[in-house]
Design a protein around this nucleic acid. Sequence first.
DNA 1: CAGCCTCGAGTTCT
DNA 2: CTCGAGGCTG
Length: 672
Amino acid sequence: MAKSVAELTFEEAKAELAFLKKELKRNDELYYNKAEPEISDWEYDQLRRRLNEIEDKFPKLKDGNSPSQKVGAPVSGVLSKIMHKKPMLSLENAFSAGDLGNFIERIQSFLNTSENLEFCAEHKIDGLSASILYKNGQLLYAATRGDGYVGEDVTNNVKAISTIPQNINFLGEIEIRGEVYMPIQSFKELNKQREEAGEKLFANPRNAAAGSLRQLDAEVTKSRNLGFFAYYINGTDLNINTQIEVMNFVKKLGFATSGCRLCHSLDDMEKYCQDTLLERPNLPYEIDGAVFKLNALELQERLGFVGRNPRHSIAFKFPAEEAETKILDILTGVGRTGKIIPVAILEPVNLNGAVVSRATLHNFSEIERKQIAVGDTVRILRSGDVIPKIISVTQKSGNATFAMPKICPSCGADLVQYPGLIDLYCPNHYGCSAQVVRYISYFVSKNCLDIPGLGEKQVAEFFDEGRIKTALDIFKLPKKEVESPLATKPGWGTVSAKKLYDAIENSRKVSLARFIVSLGIPGVGEVIAQLLASRFKNIESLQQAEKADLVELDGLGELMAEDIYTFFRNEINIKFIEEFKNLVTVSYNEKIVDENSALYGKTVVFTGTLSRLSRNEAKQIAISKGANVSSAISGKTDIVVVGETPGSKLNKATKLGIKIMSEDEFLRIKAI
DNA sequence: CAGCCTCGAGTTCT
DNA sequence: CTCGAGGCTG
């Protein structure tokens, strides 16, 4: 369709550039605000590439706001956003040799191999990850990890870090990822300076590094003496096959790396952890563990992801710092599902650089098991250096173990404990104000309608003031109602009121999956909602689904099917959905998959042991080809993929005359 | 039916 | 991050 860039006149280039920028910006919005792109990654890359080509040919048309460098609108006073080419994911944690062993076994089972695997070990630097893009040897831009998909633009700051090369010897585009950290010595000096100047001290080198990198004034960053360790590259035609090669390659480019060693067995990995722990006190930077990455990049690719973690790597965390403190009180809260959660109020104590004053106790059997009473002295840590956790009671106060409440702390209803379950519930789901408020804030949260500016606190306030009584009242707040009374509320002004109004209007376009998540059906979150959306395609069919239709889906059993079925038969819910539908536009976009694939739109069941793939791997391939994977054979099953020693499913499939497919045939389809 | 895996729900602090 | 619970596998 388009002319080659070489043929474009200046005017044509200008017009096309304007169009491309608009298109890219619009798609960035869709991608990172709604997480639902209209175009595939490939198409997006094409747009981006075209834009880069035109900009290269007509450098005069380049300006600072080009999406080739930045995406999203810069918000005043904060750093602008950059979308990562590939998501920057976090790693799963291991706390023991056993965890590492399980990790290796899981990979072997996923890859269906018993071969010895090689792992590349590195120090786990206590800093913050950053991504840096170089083009034809020049540092083009740099971003923080952010939420993993979109990070903050820290280009100027990164350019001010002397340990990061501005120019590298590499043609074409290459992305380098690594950890920005503050050396311990610099941290000490910085805090000394700040103390003398009467400024607030940084709690630890990581916070100091984060604070120093995310500066609007790069001069400040420059003065902070930050370091950088590289550990990842992303580029084309690099001819690099292992993580070890990656490390050597970045070293050649002029980056520092940390602690790199090849491990051939679990024993090697344990040895690495021990060595590193001994080395730790003498290192000039802080580490909080070791990272193990499957060495072969091709295998890494095959393993894919589970949730937000890549399956191919794991972070071994060194034991966390511990402290002792006293329990001042125990409070009970009510969750959106009515679950009663006890929380310990602690005498504030400093732990890993944060003052901890609360810790969840999860449930009452936990209190019973640990024999916890108000006044007791307890040993605590922050698991993953984040969430406070009570390990044990070290000194009894003599007070009675905290007793389970009988009535709801919010509405006073009698609490119930369902047979066989540990948690305690308030059954008054529609009348308990704590539950309603929790539900409304869930309804507007990121996974549901995503209305920024409405947090738990704001929702509670609006509810108490009578502005909203149910979740849907959010949409009924007319513009004036939102703007004027709020503009005079403490903490609100015309700007924040307008922003909220815009956010609410924005949220009126919602995907089917999000719509389902927003309903708050017990046990239905992001993943199950996505599953339901792709199976039923619209709300009406989902509402009418019989229990049998639900059970058939892979991932839903009797219990969840029952819960979902009854949810849609409840009068209050039916009315709610009817109204909800009228207030928003629900869209369902089929994922972009190959419609010509023999698996497209088919319901597939696996049986028997597959010899070259694991069940899990096979399932993901089928889904990526547009198939629905279910666990049991039924009249709706289209294809049964049969491995070795198939179970009774094969007989049933033959009886029903369902198409049988061998593993080889399945793999052939995969290859297409 | 036991043991593993996945998902959901609730939570902490800067 | 953690824990409980449901679902699936063997």
